[in-house]
């Protein structure tokens, strides 16, 4: 890896954000985590001023995405990321409360890499996040193509 992966966490619920971050850290992942509580802010960061994400061209990113956002649909964000030339190789982990089979199918169709349902059972939740941490440590995030 030429540069460390930056984790972009798009999650409107601060409690969830905290729990996710804490569990990621517990699993020994120390990558930088940039949290966003709204879809708009996250999109601004990802796509930049020109809306083409040219500034993120060479960065290794990983997106943690909640589907139920107050200002934008997580599905839309997912579609935008996967349609952008510079970001489409970025792994997207959908992490949400929705366990509707229909929704899950749609996310995978749009190119989401991992879909995790937030279980209320904390042990499972923590477990899922830690496994995600393991996943982070082994995945090779490709350099964005030019």
């Amino acid at each position: 890896m030429s540069q460390p992966v930056t984790i972009i966490m798009i999650e409107d619920d601060e409690g969830h954000a905290r729990l996710i971050e804490r569990n990621i850290r517990r699993s020994g992942v120390n990558n930088e985590i940039i949290p966003f509580t709204s879809g708009t802010a996250a999109l601004n960061y990802l796509f930049g001023d020109d809306g083409q994400a040219t500034h993120n061209k060479h960065r290794a990113l990983l997106v943690l995405l909640d589907l139920n956002l107050p200002d934008a649909s997580g599905i839309d964000i997912l579609r935008k990321i996967k349609e952008n030339d510079h970001l489409k190789t970025t792994p997207v982990v959908v992490l949400t409360t929705t366990d509707d089979a229909h929704e899950i199918k749609r996310c995978y169709e749009l190119g989401c890499n991992v879909y995790i349902t937030k279980p209320v059972n904390y042990e499972s939740f923590a477990n899922a996040i830690r496994q995600l941490g393991l996943f982070f440590s082994v995945i090779q995030v490709p350099e964005a193509s030019t």
Partner: peptide
């Protein structure tokens, strides 16, 4: 039911914490 689940995740999470 979805929106109720969100805070429940927090309650459970932080209770475990």
């Amino acid at each position: 039911s979805h929106d109720l689940r969100s805070p429940l995740v927090n309650i459970m999470g932080f209770t475990s914490e």
